[in-house]
Design a binder for these strands. Structure first.
Length: 950
RNA sequence: GGGCGAAUAGCUCAGCUGGUUAGAGCACCUGUCUUACACACAGGGGGUCGGGGGUUCGAAUCCCUCUUCGCCCACCA
């Protein structure tokens, strides 16, 4: 954690605020945990299956299953981002009237957890083998029991509104039953099989890995060229090239391309392996690329997947020359292949020694630098060793087909869209999935063997202790299943599958959105889709939302080892959960990385903290000015009594609601259950949604409406009542829109809003369970006139600033509106004046600039309205210098304006443009021409007045 | 080696099917403690939209090409 100097929010001891008195800055710590507890007590986050339409209820279901974090994990910002996105969606839909279920849980994380416990044991001078299987599993379960699930508590402190009553864990009884059911069913369907082949083996974790778990790393290695001499004529030889010379002890052949004339004479003859002297044949196989390396490949079937295939084609043996810990060791009949001095030597040590031995024997032709990809264990980063063994595999092609179709037909969309291509590409070339692991922590493979009668292995839903064929004791498979084999069932198993009568399953499957990071698209996302299609006959969700990664300022992924992480709990403590949530959501484009500076939390989370303080102060102002007396419902206020400002802000609120809705987008695909092309990429712009709320509350409500309403409230009377009603309505709407991102502060402020006088109240006790706002059915016309006020105020401020008029000084302003219908002039003038410390006179269009009298500063606003202020008002003592400067400025402005005008006129006189461009574009250009012409005119007159004609 | 994506203000990014003077946040500069907020308010500067070519009346937007980054996949020993 980075100390930040003087952060009042967290460091000053909170003085207990008098009741009804709000401190000037929002103190998250004062409200968040207590409020969360109140939500929990009220059960605001619990979903009810019977309320869902699929169960005869009245609400659409909206389901998100949480990507289960590792049970022993500690919350990091990545989790924070992931869960905040889900929480925003869930809270939005909950307010919108859906039966929203966010299903949380944790994953037993086979390898990861086992590694942690093994490390503990090592520190105690023990090991898993010393402990034995049963004790080790008990110990690990104990470890999970005491330290696990912490992360779920942490999620609560960032405001996650998951349904904790349904919290799941992959190693519980029901989840295990689901795993067994899935395995057995696939087994019965012929989609699970036992395979004897070369797989990725982690010699540190002592288990096999799937293709996805063995990650590529570009590594600078070496290519060793080694000479193998002919057995019957040592003067002749073939040179092979390899990156792993130690494997030569297991070579059974050298392969050359059948068309390679260089080696044609060698095919069929025997070579002598250096070091162990074993004789191996030269074979011809298409696998060898004559153009690569030396054009001759050593074949080591037991230690290379390709070589294994070549070996099978040529009926060659597959001697194993390394043990499970990747030490050199020959097995059984092949023991002689590893010379005594190399036995038990680690593979990398052996590599060096063998290279030296080859050099001594003159068999090492050359060593060249070679950059290549080496696979590493995704859990411990150890270099993976290809190893021949028996493993359980899932046949993937039949599962992949419906999963491909789901995306192709639009049943599922993946956002950002570009990942769809990646998904399709992977599924099209999918390979079988190795699901067995030589670990102890996980779901045991539900397959049983009989050693006495030799019956075929049986997969069983229930434990088999005696062989059904001969009655001898049966033996269960020692291996456990890949962690991801339980994860891929998660969207179903957490809802009660395989019990098809489970009300949760019926009500909430299929779900809606999966929110996760692109890294686990293959590990998890696509497999869930496959299992959903296979076991449930339908995909588990319609939208896959892949968010970016949280990175530091050098764009490095935050990681423990780099020490560049941010602890979300620190942020919560300093600025509150809302600030954390806001900063992440507002700073996050679709699929775009979030950049945060771990060395400066103050700077990183300023956007969130600043916005919260602003919102808090808007609330303070509003609540103190409006008071606690009930306000009239908006519906009770006659349209005529609404001022232009009222009409305008009500329009703006409706617009903000509309923008939030379209940013969040279509909730689910329309009829037919498939996304249309237009819908497919729409919505899920959480940053745009947050921005719509921020803009309304800050740039419209606070910056403009609040300022205009001050005098009205002070004046009291009927108009003040109108203002109060509008104010409360708008703030209420803003809080509703913002609740999903910043639930704590909005709930706190909302609770303090005055009641509605007709007793209609606001529906619920909590904002979080209140209704998502809707635009008014009918708007009151005339709010647009407020744009004149805004433009005039901006114009006056600009002029005042240019002339450096002291903020306290008031000036006389003449306004010449372009449109004759310019609404109630006196009221507008008063409003403008109040906002700019000016005495404003509004003249009709007949008023001429000359009428403003003498030399003046003028500004033409959008729409053609002119703001005129006499120079005598602006210049304390008008100096020749000032005048000259102003003249120069005006002339250059005139030039520029004229240039733009010429351009627009040229465009307008071009028939191709007027006939082909869209009508509204042409109209826009015409309006622009009018405005520009007026501006040129005004500038010309101004220059005449101030600088004299030239 | 294959595939995909990106290049717009100092930084992070918006700019929809080509059409007003290319926007936002942060950063920067100037002024202001204006009785909700200095975690604020007001004003301002800053971009030949990666280079080159093409299509078009018109290109940040479409096409080609080059350059530079990033991501995913891949059994080249």
């Amino acid at each position: 954690m980075t100390p930040t100097d003087g952060t009042p929010t967290s460091q000053s001891p909170a003085p207990t605020p008098a009741p009804d008195e709000l401190p000037t800055t929002y103190r998250a710590a004062d409200v968040e945990s207590a409020l969360y507890a109140r939500w929990q007590a009220a059960g605001t986050d619990v979903a009810h299956a019977e309320r869902v339409t699929r169960m005869g209820g009245g609400r659409d279901p909206y389901t998100i299953v949480m990507p289960p974090p590792n049970v022993t994990a500690i919350l990091h910002v990545g989790h924070g981002l992931n869960n905040t996105v889900q929480d925003v969606l869930i809270r939005w839909r909950r307010m919108a009237g859906d039966e929203a279920l966010w299903l949380p849980g944790t994953d037993h994380a086979g390898i990861a957890t086992q590694n942690v416990v093994e490390k503990q044991l090592a520190a105690e001078g023990s090991s898993r083998s010393a402990l034995g299987r049963e004790a080790f599993v008990a110990r690990t379960a104990q470890f999970v029991e005491t330290t696990g699930g912490q992360i779920l508590q942490q999620l609560k402190s960032i405001g996650a509104s998951a349904d904790w009553s349904r919290t799941a864990y992959t190693l519980t009884e029901p989840m295990s039953a689901a795993v067994t059911e899935a395995f057995v069913r696939l087994f019965e369907d012929g989609l699970v099989y036992r395979g004897h082949r070369v797989i990725h083996w982690c010699p540190r974790c002592m288990t096999s890995l799937s293709d996805e778990e063995a990650e590529f790393n570009e590594t600078q290695g070496a290519m060793y060229h080694i000479r193998y001499r002919l057995a019957d004529d040592p003067s002749q030889s073939i040179t092979v090239a390899t990156t792993r010379p130690e494997t030569l002890l297991g070579d059974v052949a050298v392969a050359v391309n059948p068309t390679d004339e260089r080696y044609a004479a060698f095919v069929g003859r025997q070579l002598t392996l250096p070091i162990n002297g074993v004789h191996i044949p030269v074979i011809a196989d298409d696998y060898t690329d004559a153009a690569f390396g030396t054009g001759a490949v050593k074949i080591t079937p037991a230690h290379d997947p390709n070589d294994f295939e070549v070996g099978k084609r040529h009926a060659l043996s597959a001697p194993i020359i390394m043990d499970a810990e990747a030490r050199m060791n020959g097995m059984g009949d092949d023991a002689h292949r590893v010379p005594p001095e190399l036995r038990g030597v680690d593979r990398f040590e052996a590599r060096e020694r063998i290279v030296n031995m080859l050099r001594d024997q003159g068999a090492l032709v050359k060593v060249e630098a070679h950059q290549h990809s080496v696979r590493h264990c995704y859990r411990c980063d150890t270099v993976v060793e290809p190893r021949l063994s028996d493993q359980w595999f899932v046949k993937m092609a039949p599962l992949a087909a419906p999963a491909l179709a789901a995306v192709r037909t639009g049943r599922i969309r993946i956002l950002p869209e570009r990942w769809e291509a990646v998904y399709i590409n992977w599924l099209e070339g999918i390979r079988d999935w190795n699901i067995s692991r030589q670990l102890w922590w996980g779901h045991r493979v539900p397959v049983y063997y009989c050693d006495s009668c030799g019956a075929a292995p049986k997969a069983s839903r229930t434990t088999i202790t005696t062989c059904p064929d001969c009655g001898a004791p049966a033996r269960q498979d020692e291996d456990v299943l890949d962690t991801w084999f339980s994860s891929w069932l998660w969207p179903m198993s957490t809802l009660g599958w395989p019990n098809m009568e489970s009300s949760d399953l019926k009500a909430f499957y299929p779900g809606d959105v999966l929110v996760t990071a692109p890294e686990i698209l293959f590990f998890w996302v696509s497999r869930m889709i496959m299992s959903g299609c296979y076991f449930m006959g339908d995909a588990p969700y319609h939208t896959v939302y892949l968010h970016g990664t949280v990175r530091d300022m050098q764009h490095r992924k935050m990681s423990k080892s780099l020490g560049n992480g941010i602890d979300p709990m620190d942020v919560v403590q300093l600025y509150g959960a809302d600030a954390l949530r806001w900063t992440m959501v507002a700073g996050m484009g679709l699929g775009v990385d979030v950049l945060l500076d771990p060395t400066d939390l103050e700077k990183s989370f300023a956007p969130g903290r600043n916005f919260l303080t602003k919102l808090w102060n808007i609330g303070r102002f509003l609540l103190t000015k409006v008071g606690t007396e009930p306000v009239q419902p908006l519906s009770a206020i006659a349209t005529e009594s609404l001022t232009i400002a009222d009409r305008w802000i009500l329009d703006r609120l409706d617009a903000a609601i509309g923008e939030a809705n379209s940013a969040l987008g279509p909730v689910r695909p329309g009829t037919g259950g498939c996304w249309t092309e237009a819908e497919r990429t729409a919505g899920m712009r959480l940053d745009a949604y947050a921005d719509a709320g921020r803009r309304f509350v800050w740039n419209e409500l606070a910056d403009w409406y609040l300022e205009t309403v001050k005098p009205r409230l002070a004046a009291g009377g009927a108009d003040a009542e109108v203002a109060r009603a509008v104010l409360v309505h708008c703030f209420d709407g803003a809080l509703r829109v913002l609740q999903p991102v910043i639930p704590f502060i909005t709930e706190t402020l909302w609770a303090k809003l005055p009641a509605i006088s007709d007793g209609s109240a606001r529906g619920t006790e909590f904002l979080t369970t209140s209704a998502w706002p809707a635009a008014r059915p009918a708007r009151a016309e005339g709010g647009d006139a407020f744009e004149l006020v805004r433009n005039a105020v901006l114009g006056i401020r600009q002029i005042r600033n240019e002339y450096k008029v002291k903020p306290g000084k008031s000036v006389a302003v003449t306004l010449l509106p372009s449109a004759a219908d310019a609404a109630p002039a006196p009221l507008l003038a008063e409003t403008i004046g109040a906002l700019t410390r000016a005495t404003v006179t509004i003249r009709g269009t007949e008023g001429s600039p000359a009428a403003a009298g003498g030399a003046s500063a003028q500004q033409v606003l959008t729409g053609g309205t002119e703001v005129v202020i006499a120079l005598s008002e602006l210049l304390e003592a008008e100096s020749a210098e000032d005048t000259a400067k102003e003249c120069a400025r005006l002339r250059s402005e005139l030039d520029q304006t004229q240039k733009i005008l010429d351009g627009v006129r040229a465009k307008l006189s071009n028939e191709s443009f007027t006939s082909r461009a869209k009508p509204e574009v042409v109209d826009g250009a015409r309006a622009q021409e009018r405005d520009l012409a007026q501006k040129v005119d005004a500038l010309t007159r101004k220059i005449e007045a101030l600088c004299g004609t030239r």
